[in-house]
Design a protein around this nucleic acid. Structure first.
Lengths: 222, 222
DNA sequence: CGCAAACAAACCAACGGTCTGTTTGTATCC
DNA sequence: GGATACAAACAGACCGTTGGTTTGTTTGCG
């Protein structure tokens, strides 16, 4: 079936399949052959639309970033909320986005998903902070709901902690650990005027992750 | 030259070479052939001492962990310092360790070193926090120099921020950005009784990284 | 002397990636 | 509006390299 009339459909199929496989098995353990088998496409098809396996991975990440970015942009540009209120909303929102993306069962633990972690860190520095978080913090400074002389740095600390620590994707944790993390997280930012960054409702939602079934064992025991 | 009398020398050579190559080029871009060429050994030799390429990587990481662990253990067990004083000393120490390991020029940016980042995160949760940081925080609580109900969580937040944020390895930054990060970092932990976690001297040392030459371009532009 | 540790090196399947070839939608010309 | 041209959209054979295995050889040492 050459010369498809709707090539963007093919691209979508490739990205959908690749995203699922990368999330399920990790980048390294997903071979091009796996993607070929599951899409029913040929190598020619894939290399017509993408330059390399890594290119597919980056495109997958970019698409996830765009999905999340749309929701974050709406929040950022909402002019009925103060900066502080937006920060609180983000805690709620990012949990929701994570659920959608199903990245929360991304692992057999961290080691098999090094590439995703690295990309997340990159996008935090290059995208999430400068495009969404810093502007929101600056708004908070302007409207008096946040106090700091270093909006960028404060935004970085908040996003990093929430995305690679609070967020239980990265490391499984018990209910008590999750609750303790949230308590510390809230206390950390109190002196910047940011009270109750994570409210009880979100804490409960986070706690639910503690019971999530995890893949039995990391494949590469050290 | 078969049947070497000092096989541990061979192991050391393999680990030394692999560590250097992994740091210079990243795990993915270092092939076994590279290690063979630079050590002058054969595949048989390497697979006699190691189970796989990943096994070499884990051994490299383990060795780095042991090197750092020795220094951290000495600090932890020093009974002339309060918990708080030990935390301050760690800021200084980890900078020093990083310099030794030369991991600070680990990159062509983050994307080429996903595996190291993931291992660092793992070792933070599995090793650094429970073995070193949490005991120190607990000591600080006992001797009154630190105030928190959640020593583990506080330790996690401190290590994460210092290792993947303050530490300029992960993302290059200007002098002003580094200084701003340190200021925010110090303010974050003030309410736990932890004053001046990073002092001016360390800030200056960190600033010096801003001028470090970085590899020109990431190899995989998105 | 014998045996296993410590290698050397040929060998292998699978991988990511390339190249050439084929089909086919569509713009263009008359 | 039908023939023609052309490139987009694939298919699939092919290639070098990779990580990993196997078999063979040397040699220190009990």
């Amino acid at each position: 079936m050459s010369r498809n009339k709707y090539p963007e459909e093919t691209v979508r199929r490739i990205l959908d399949t690749a995203e699922r496989l990368f999330v399920e098995k990790g980048y390294d353990r997903t071979s091009l052959q796996d993607i070929l088998d599951e899409t029913g496409l040929s190598k020619g098809a894939i290399y017509h639309h993408f330059a390399s396996k890594e290119d597919i991975f980056y495109s997958v990440c970019e698409r996830i970033g765009k999905r999340n970015g749309a929701a974050l942009a709406r929040l950022r540009d909402d002019d009925t909320l103060t900066g502080l209120e937006k920060l609180r909303a983000i805690s709620r929102l990012s949990l929701q986005l994570e659920r959608q993306a199903k990245t929360f069962n991304m692992m057999p633990y961290l080691k098999d998903n090094a590439k995703f972690l690295a990309m997340e860190m990159c996008s935090i520095y290059e995208d999430v902070v400068p495009v969404f978080m810093e502007p929101i913090v600056r708004q908070g400074i302007a409207d008096g709901s946040i106090r700091t002389a270093h909006p960028r740095a404060l935004a970085e600390a908040m996003v990093l902690l929430s995305d690679v620590w609070i967020n239980p994707i990265v490391q499984p944790a018990t209910r008590e650990e999750i609750r303790a993390r949230c308590a510390v997280y809230n206390q950390l930012f109190r002196s910047f005027g940011i009270e109750e960054l994570i409210d009880e409702e979100v804490v409960c939602a986070l706690e639910a992750y503690a019971d999530m079934p995890r893949p039995s064992q990391p494949l590469n025991a050290v």
